[in-house]
């Protein structure tokens, strides 16, 4: 789907993750919450693909399916690394372990993502230990090397998480994700739990590490201001679906989907001139267990036409390198930043 000549590192095809909903005394299954519903995207080696959307749009679920923390309900995830092609959702045993060495996750909450009963050395060393990569002295050396990289100090090794600040904890989480030397890192809202002053430090650390280790990032965030700082391309999610995907500059200055426009309008402005044009997208996202027949955004879209009620749009190419899922994309002139 992308125009790149090189084969993408990651291909996601029609990915679905439906969580069963059961009700009543006998726990009868009454339906599904369609957290991720038919997502297609490619991730090129070395790029940062930002995924943005509001809470409950399925960003985190998408990220967790890609690193196989969740088993997808349907669709395909193909990863190509070191000359191997892996069908991620079908992996088992040794192959799964090989995949895990190449795809790691940075978690959102620096408090719950560290086991309070393990020292930094044990936490960061765990991926090395369970994958039989290193142990003993060698493990200690590798852990020391990586924690110096993320800006911690050697004397931190034997400390427990309760002695660290949020920013330092997130550095530990980053070290744990990096220690296996992965190709792909899914950063799931890595800075949203941190103070603004710390956010910049962590983002710069992530960018430094990307350069040093040629990493590919899938950067998930609800904050457009954070995503635009780190991403090469941006994908916008709404109600479990991709509504727009495009190169950063293009998407920011010429949004093609009304939801992207609304998201951009919500980014805090710095110049006086641009203020006062806030575009508020009223209403709530649809119930994921009971999606509308037509476009998922129809209830909040101020441009909605009759076709939007009737027919669900599909993600289609528009212009160079951009994709949008809107019936009216060609006829709308939307406001960027």
């Amino acid at each position: 789907m992308a125009n790149h000549t090189q084969e993408p590192l990651l291909e996601v095809r029609d990915l679905k993750k439906w969580f069963p909903v059961s009700k009543g005394f006998l726990q009868r299954q009454t339906g599904f919450v369609k957290a991720v519903d038919g997502v297609n995207l490619d991730v090129q080696a070395g790029e940062t693909l930002g995924i943005v959307g509001e809470s409950g749009s399925g960003k985190t679920t998408l990220g967790r399916c890609i690193t196989r923390l969740y088993m997808p309900t349907g669709g395909k995830i193909i990863m190509r690394a070191d000359g191997e092609t892996m069908d991620v959702s079908a992996l088992k045993g040794k192959e799964l372990s090989a995949f895990r060495k190449r795809a790691q996750t940075i978690f959102q909450d620096p408090y719950s993502s560290l086991n309070p009963r393990m020292t930094v050395l044990q936490t960061v060393g765990e991926p090395l230990l369970v994958n039989n990569v290193a142990k003993g002295k060698e493990l200690e050396d590798r852990v020391t090397e990586i924690i110096l990289q993320v800006g911690l100090r050697v004397e931190h090794l034997q400390r427990y998480p309760h002695s660290f600040s949020g920013g330092q904890r997130q550095r530990i989480g980053i070290a744990r994700a990096m220690v296996l030397n992965p190709k792909l890192v899914v950063a799931d809202e890595p800075v949203s739990a941190l103070d603004v002053s710390i956010q910049a430090q962590i983002l710069n650390l992530l960018l430094d590490l990307q350069q040093k280790y040629q990493l590919t990032y899938l950067f998930i965030s609800h904050a457009m201001s954070v995503v635009r700082y780190v991403s090469d391309r941006i994908a916008v999610m709404y109600a479990g679906k991709l509504v727009e995907l495009g190169p950063k500059q293009e998407l920011l200055s010429h949004p093609k989907h009304p939801y992207t426009e609304a998201l951009l309008a919500a980014v805090p402005k710095t110049s006086q001139r641009k203020r006062g044009m806030r575009l508020v997208s009223a209403g709530e996202p649809p119930d994921l267990a009971n999606l509308p027949k037509g476009c998922v955004f129809v209830s909040r879209c101020k441009y909605a036409a009759e076709i939007c009620q009737e027919q669900a749009p599909v993600l289609r190419p528009l212009g160079s390198d951009s994709f949008v899922s809107c019936h009216l994309a060609e006829s709308l002139t939307l406001q960027g930043i």
């Binding site: 996750t105 959102q108 993502s113 744990r176």
Partner: peptide, 14 residues
């Protein structure tokens, strides 16, 4: 449901 359990799964722990 704690993230550190998920992280251990992600690391490939048994």
């Amino acid at each position: 449901e704690e993230d550190y359990t998920l992280a251990a799964i992600g690391a490939g722990a048994s």
